[in-house]
């Protein structure tokens, strides 16, 4: 490890700045990419390639009416979007972007991540419930069910990585991938975590809690202005977070050939995953709620258990 104490203020500031901007930028990227794949233009007026649309959007959100419906449960209504942003942002604390670039190198990093990501369920259920709107509530219930279900598989899938690395510390997990990225031995775990990750962020195709066509935006029907914006940005930060986790856990994190600095490797890998997320949205139909749940409980859960036991057995066997 580096002997010099890292400048934590720099890291904190950097992480926050980058993440917020990445999330904002992602909105633009997604729209552009979707347009590309769907053979249309996408945002192209404001600024070069419509890049300023992000700024325009956020300014608009700030100046929108800060509307709290009179039938809503006010404190909870305000709290819900805050939770999503806070929990996702806090999750970035434990991600080792590169050697030394990590806010808090917790030895329970992985657990911290899991804990924070389960907080997300609160924002959905609280938001949907406080809106006092039938569709919101429906969306919230579905969303909560979906998130807590996939939470289980997510946690169990991660255990494969933990078994191989022997640590919850994300930095150590990355370092354990020096020889072989866990993506290969843990292909099953990777797939499960990936799927669960999508479900956790309720991204398309698993965007059941907010399915526009059936639930008119689900749990955030009643949200507008910056509070909606926080849900919105929270989702993109969630994608980023899951991508970071995928990279950290299965794709060697910052590891890569020496010709590029570690942080660049990390960014490249994350961006690749972000693209995959967007591509998924462009290409996949949305399953029904029951299909999604049954898929999780009946297929993913047994698979994770199998993965876990096989991994453990192999590791034990290899190590004598």
């Amino acid at each position: 490890m580096e002997t010099a104490a890292p400048n934590y203020f720099l890291i904190i500031g950097g992480v926050l700045f980058v993440m917020l901007n990445v999330a904002a930028a992602l909105i633009w990227v997604e729209r552009r990419m979707l347009a590309l794949w769907q053979d249309r233009y996408g945002p192209n007026r404001a600024g070069p390639f419509g890049l300023l649309i992000v700024a325009a959007d956020s300014i608009k959100l700030f100046f929108k009416q800060d509307w709290v419906p009179p039938f809503a449960d006010k404190p909870v209504f305000v709290l819900a979007p805050a939770i999503v942003v806070i929990s996702v942002l806090l999750s970035f604390v434990v991600i080792p972007f590169a050697p030394g670039i990590i806010v808090a190198d917790l030895n329970i990093g992985l657990l911290f991540f899991l804990a924070m990501s389960s907080m997300g369920a609160y924002s959905i259920i609280l938001g949907g419930w406080s809106s006092n709107n039938k569709y919101s509530l429906l969306g919230a219930m579905r969303g909560a069910a979906q998130m807590i279900s996939y939470e289980v598989f997510m946690g169990l899938a991660l255990m494969g990585v933990v078994l191989m690395a022997g640590s919850f510390n994300l930095r150590e997990i990355v370092e354990a991938q020096q020889g072989l990225w866990f993506f290969i031995p843990q292909i099953l775990g990777f797939v499960i975590f990936f799927i669960a990750g999508i479900a956790e962020t309720h991204r398309l195709p698993f965007d059941i809690p907010e399915a526009e066509s059936e639930l008119i935006a689900g749990f955030h029907s009643e949200y507008s202005g910056m509070k909606f914006g926080m849900f919105f940005i929270g989702e993109y930060m969630g994608i980023t977070l899951i991508s970071c986790m995928l990279v950290t856990l299965y794709f060697g994190g910052w590891l890569g050939p020496d010709f590029l600095p570690p942080i660049v490797w990390f960014i490249i890998k994350v961006v690749a995953f972000l693209m995959i997320f967007i591509l998924l949205r462009a290409s996949m139909p949305r399953p029904r709620y029951d299909q999604l749940m049954e898929y999780g409980w009946k297929i993913l859960l047994p698979l994770t258990l199998v993965n876990l036991m096989v991994t453990a057995a192999v590791v034990l066997w290899l190590e004598g």
Binding site: Y8, F9, I11, I12, V15, L16, L61, F62, K64, D66, V78, A82, V85, I86, L89, L90, V93, V103, A104, L106, G225, M226, K227, G229, M230
Partner: peptide
């Protein structure tokens, strides 16, 4: 652990600022 706390504080205040501003 203090960076974590600082980070957390910043995040909280950031969210507060965003909500307040809007």
């Amino acid at each position: 652990l203090w960076p974590l706390l600082v980070y957390g504080a910043i995040v909280l205040s950031l969210v507060g600022v965003i909500l307040g501003l809007s």
